[in-house]
Amino acid sequence: MTVIQPILTLLVVGAVIAYFVWLRSRLADRLIVLVVAAAAIVLVGNPDLATLLAHSVGVGRGVDVIIYLTLFGYGFLGMLLISKVRGLEARLAELAQALALATASKPGEGSVRSDAR
């Protein structure tokens, strides 16, 4: 392992956490997905670019850089999905809670509530 690899790993993990905790926005999500897709297209069309990029950051082969970037992309998408699912769950919970409050019954309303379900 080269010296740069753990440093790069820490930087990427730190950047992802910072993004999800402080910087996330819908526009930024979309921009990142677009940038990753554009980078993929450019690298597929110009494999030598990957090798150049690899040498510039101290990694031997271009294919390794692509694997690292792919792993990063998968990790990012995974976290994006978790984040979206949690957002949906929160909204679903609010809806269910509002429904429960709207249909609450007081003591003595037993017949009403058993009919309502």
Partner: peptide
């Protein structure tokens, strides 16, 4: 629950204990 003289609320789906307490 419905047979007893209590204030009764029901979530249409299972949300978890924290959500039930908040409701």
């Amino acid at each position: 629950t419905c047979t007893l003289p209590v204030h009764a609320l029901r979530h249409p789906i299972n949300l978890g204990q924290g959500a039930a307490l908040q409701t």
